[in-house]
Simulated scan of single mutants.
Amino acid sequence: MIERDTPLANPPLEDIRSKIEKAARIADRKSSDIALIAVSKTRSSDEIRPLLEAGHRVFGENRVQEAMEKWPGLKADYPDVELHMIGQLQSNKAAEAVALFDFIHSLDRLSLVKALAKEMDRQDRRIGCFLQVNIGEETQKGGCDIKAVPELLAQALKASIPVAGLMAVPPENVNPVPYFALLAKLARDHDLEGLSMGMSDDFESAIKLGATHIRVGTALFGARATPAV
């Protein structure tokens, strides 16, 4: 385990934290109630370590296999890391996901409810799950239909899955605010407190509308390198 008396400075992280605090203050909220998930998908261990050295401990990955390759080694040095699965999850990866992640943000269908419940029982490990909602009704995106939320929630609770809240990704290139507001209303209607919404370009708006978990990648790590042709 790596220990540091004083975390190393990380300007991008400090800037994001400052913006979170400002947005929370405007919304009359506590910034401590908002989890910053550093989206480390496609990022190498060497790219992730500066954030760890700066004291950040909450990270998100999109693919189970990629996370399994990076995080066991990183967690050996930083065992207090909290790892979130934020990408689409195949039912046949439920065992690995339950073993590795602390939260899953992409519970969107009954077959996955069954697979996760089975693995949580088998591993005797309950992890919080967000129901992913296809808030923009986009055929190319994952997430359950808005009208399917009540049944999916009921089935998840019946299977003793801890439901942390709702998650959504608004359509691209449009104002995300109405979609954030709709997700917040859905959460209130179903007595759910968690709202996983908001990314690098719009997390401040999401916070003002109640986000409890924001997923930030580019603003922390910088733009991804363009693959060579």
Rank of each mutant, 00 (worst) to 15 (best):
P72C: 12
L182C: 02
Q140H: 12
A228Q: 12
A168S: 15
E3N: 10
N175S: 10
I207H: 01
T212N: 01
I37H: 03
T212P: 03
M85H: 09
E3C: 06
A211V: 04
S31Y: 02
P178G: 01
H84K: 09
P50A: 12
A159S: 15
K158T: 11
D15Y: 01
L52N: 08
E151S: 14
E204N: 03
A54V: 08
E119K: 07
I20C: 02
R224P: 06
P150Q: 12
L166E: 01
A223F: 00
I26L: 08
T42R: 08
V174N: 03
L186G: 01
A99P: 10
D201I: 07
A23F: 02
M85V: 12
A159N: 15
I214L: 04
D28I: 01
Q90N: 06
E3R: 12
L100H: 09
N134L: 08
G142M: 02
G87H: 03
K19G: 04
D102I: 07
A223I: 00
A228F: 07
I135S: 07
L13D: 05
Q65F: 06
L8G: 00
S18W: 00
K41A: 12
L89P: 13
L220I: 01
Q123R: 06
T226L: 00
L195D: 00
K70H: 08
W71R: 02
I34T: 06
R63H: 13
Q90T: 04
N134V: 11
L192H: 05
V39W: 04
D15V: 13
L209N: 14
P11Q: 07
N134F: 09
Q123Y: 09
A54K: 11
L116N: 04
D5G: 12
L74H: 11
L182D: 05
K30V: 02
A54I: 09
A159F: 13
D102E: 15
G165Y: 02
V174K: 05
K141D: 12
L209H: 14
W71T: 02
R4T: 05
E61S: 04
D5V: 10
M199T: 08
L166D: 08
D77G: 09
L83A: 02
A27D: 09
L8A: 11
L166C: 03
K75A: 08
M68H: 14
G128Q: 15
Y78H: 11
N175F: 03
A187P: 05
E21M: 08
K75Q: 14
V133P: 11
S40R: 02
L192F: 07
F101V: 14
N62V: 03
F130P: 13
I86C: 07
K147E: 15
A54H: 10
G73M: 14
A206I: 00
E137Q: 15
C144I: 07
P150V: 11
E14W: 01
V174F: 01
I104D: 06
D189W: 01
E66Y: 06
A164S: 10
P7L: 09
E53L: 10
G194P: 03
V149K: 03
V39S: 10
N134S: 11
P178T: 13
L100Y: 10
